[in-house]
Amino acid sequence: MGKQATEMLKGVLEGIVLAILARRPAYGYEITAWLRERGFADIAEGTVYALLVRVEQRGLVDVEKVPSEKGPPRKVYTLNAQGRDYLDEFWRTWSFLADRLEELHGKGE
């Protein structure tokens, strides 16, 4: 991924992670693996974990520690009602921006 794509991704990664959690609860490594499988190969695990800490602190997710077969318990994140509201706002903003960008790209001429 180029520098421009990396910078753009930083701005929307939180929304992407919340959208993943809207589908089902997940732990950090699962989220990172899902992103990498879909072409976001440059995302570091640490980036995802730091983001999960931030959304937890802001009250957008619920966290449950689940025993793991390998090592310490895993923190499983679930999108809560406040997180769903935030994600809804993210999608509204995304739609607005995508429409404006499409206009600038050529349709609005």
Rank of each mutant, 00 (worst) to 15 (best):
L60M: 10
V63M: 06
D88I: 10
N80D: 07
L87M: 13
G83A: 04
T78G: 04
R74C: 05
V61S: 01
D85H: 06
V76P: 00
A81E: 15
L60A: 04
G83P: 02
G83K: 00
V61D: 00
R92D: 09
V61I: 08
K65Q: 12
G59P: 10
R92T: 05
V66Q: 04
E69G: 12
E64R: 07
R84F: 01
F90L: 02
E69T: 15
K65W: 05
K75Y: 09
Y86F: 15
S68L: 09
T78P: 06
D85V: 05
Y86K: 08
E56A: 13
L60Y: 04
G59Q: 12
T78Q: 10
Y77G: 03
E69V: 15
R58C: 11
Q82V: 08
D85F: 07
E64H: 09
D85W: 07
R58Q: 15
K70C: 08
G59K: 10
K65V: 05
G83R: 00
F90Y: 08
P73N: 03
V76E: 07
S68F: 10
L60V: 02
Q82H: 13
R92A: 09
V66F: 06
R58E: 15
Y86L: 05
P67S: 02
R74K: 15
D85L: 06
P72I: 12
Y86T: 10
V63W: 08
R92P: 00
E56R: 15
N80F: 00
D62H: 10
Y77Q: 05
V63L: 07
E64P: 01
D88N: 14
P73V: 03
Q57P: 07
Q82L: 14
E56H: 13
G59I: 11
K65D: 08
D85P: 01
E56K: 15
R84S: 03
P72R: 15
G59A: 13
N80G: 01
V76G: 03
K70T: 10
P73M: 05
D88R: 14
L87W: 05
L87E: 08
G83F: 00
L79C: 05
T78V: 05
N80V: 01
D85R: 13
V61Y: 01
V66L: 07
K75I: 03
W91P: 00
F90K: 01
P72Q: 15
A81P: 10
G71I: 04
Y86G: 04
F90Q: 03
V76K: 08
R84H: 10
G71K: 09
P73R: 06
G83Y: 00
V61G: 04
N80E: 07
D85G: 08
Q82Y: 10
D88F: 13
E64I: 09
V63N: 06
R58M: 14
F90P: 00
K75G: 02
D62C: 12
N80H: 06
L60F: 07
Y86S: 10
G83T: 00
E89P: 01
V63P: 02
E69Q: 14
R58I: 11
G71W: 04
E56I: 06
Y77R: 02
G59M: 11
R58G: 12
W91G: 04
E69I: 15
A81Y: 13
P72V: 11
Y86M: 08
L87P: 04
S68G: 14
